[in-house]
Design a protein around this nucleic acid. Structure first.
Lengths: 274, 274
DNA sequence: GGAGCGCTGTATCTTATGTTACGTATTTTG
DNA sequence: CAAAATACGTAACATAAGATACAGCGCTCC
């Protein structure tokens, strides 16, 4: 059964022509506000013409645009009157919504529950003090997280390097690493032998290691100065790196804040280079 | 300081004449819906005439009725984007828990609320049916997400390619793309000109585009067959890609499930290759 | 109790919004 | 590859919306 207009749309969006689908997507993207504006504004937002908007609402079964708007308003009224129904979406209680989401939300909460603010602040401070270089590397599936973090950190401070490519390549970079440097490693099951070896050698050279791993802890934890253990279990064939991703974003934010003064200037400089 | 229109009203309601006060009370009673309706409906609901409504609006400092409505809509938009601020009272958030986490949790819920199961299933089905090749690409900060997704998809099916490196390189890959193929693009603010150009050309060649973007929709939405709009707002200098990351993981899981029969064999084959 | 002021509603006008018709472009089908 | 069907946008149209002018009414204060 279809109760909301949003459902109605996602139900029929497959059968719509391109233009109307754009209208639908625009409406869903910031639902239901676009639908409360005028046809002209709606069409401009979606990048189509006004008749297309009207055909779109007609296809949804409404006689005219005002009738469509009234329906949206009624829906909004019902939502606003019972805020609980918005937070606890009936579909989420019904289990229709992806159990992946539920599991991920749990993972996030659990991960942060075991992660004190102080710990995060310490790590952020270590990343922010630029005594030496910062290296980032990840495993088979987690290397994108290392890239993501590197992409941000490299903007707000110099000497941030993502170690990519073959093992032999980054192994040679060990020669550049010393006790003033930081190495951020992402490694979750199944832990990669090559990463462990690399971490050990870096550790021997006095490099401070910050490890992102799962709750069973990669063997690299043995060499790490800081360990972030994220929950990874989800109802899927794969483990989830979402919790580690969010921790990474949190750290990026914290480091940025600490480097605000120096960082702001650097960002301005970068902008002017474009 | 007065931040919301509701405050503004209750601030001045004492100085208003009887008719306008009725208008004010009616609006407050089911705020802000009455204000989004037409002047005629508003006046009928309040039991006064239309000019009284207009005088009421003028007294609040608005030049005309549409301006007043826009202000209400903006306010509503702000509310809908951060449901936590309304649902969870600030005192409960007073704990030491990172506001980043709270914002991210909200973003996840909001993103999935606008994303129906059917839509996800459709996209997963499209990614699972291997009529053609699958290409993935991302912008400056989102390319790691493309990599992450590619790393997983490439294991369970053949002909999955992540487009990396310079623009000229992947532009040349266009020649391999046809209407049987799928292109997954990640693009959030600030949208990259090069990606838009690339998407347009791919679209012209009949490639089906699946777009991961933010709620303001990249211009690429114009060419996309499927659009996933994730919430990105967090208390940080950067936008958050966490919601898109989780959607990506969800899709990876769904595709894997669909390809279970074929995929399981493939995974076994891969294992034996090690 | 009468004059002045202010608030409110009716009626009219103007604007801009939603609607429709039609020609062109695009896609699909035989 | 051709022909039909469908979809889209431009432009003209009709309608309903918001704005305004003005008259009536009630209230207050001499």
């Amino acid at each position: 059964m279809i109760s909301s207009i949003a459902e109605l749309i996602s139900d029929r969006i497959g059968t719509m022509p391109a233009g109307e689908r754009r209208a639908a997507q625009t409406l869903i993207a910031n639902y239901p506000l676009t639908g409360l504006k005028t046809v002209a504004e709606f069409s401009a937002a979606a990048g189509v013409s006004s008749p297309t908007i009207l055909r779109f609402v007609a296809r949804l079964g409404f006689q005219n645009y005002p009738e469509f708007q009234s329906a949206l308003q009624d829906e909004l009224a019902a939502q606003l009157q019972s805020p609980a129904s918005r937070t606890l979406d009936p579909s989420s209680a019904g289990g229709a919504v992806s159990p992946m989401l539920e599991a991920t939300l749990d993972n996030l909460r659990e991960t942060f529950r075991h992660l004190s603010d102080k710990q995060l602040a310490d790590i952020a401070a270590r990343l922010a003090e630029r005594r030496g270089k910062t290296f980032l590397i990840g495993g088979r599936f987690t290397d994108p997280l290392a890239r993501y973090m590197a992409a941000h950190l490299a903007i707000i401070q110099p000497e941030v390097y993502h170690l990519a490519g073959q093992e032999s390549i980054w192994r040679d970079r060990l020669i550049d690493m010393g006790k003033r440097d930081v190495l951020v490693i992402f490694d979750i099951r199944r832990y990669q032998e090559s990463l462990v070896r690399f971490a050990e050698k870096a550790h021997q050279r006095g490099v401070q290691i910050i490890l992102f791993t799962d709750q069973w802890l990669s063997p690299i934890a043995r060499f790490a100065r800081h360990v972030i253990a994220g929950r990874t279990a989800v109802p899927s064939a794969w483990d989830s790196s979402a919790a580690l991703f969010v921790v990474a974003e949190t750290l990026i934010g914290a480091v940025t804040r600490q480097l605000e003064a120096a960082g702001a200037k650097r960002i301005r400089d970068l902008e002017s280079l474009r």
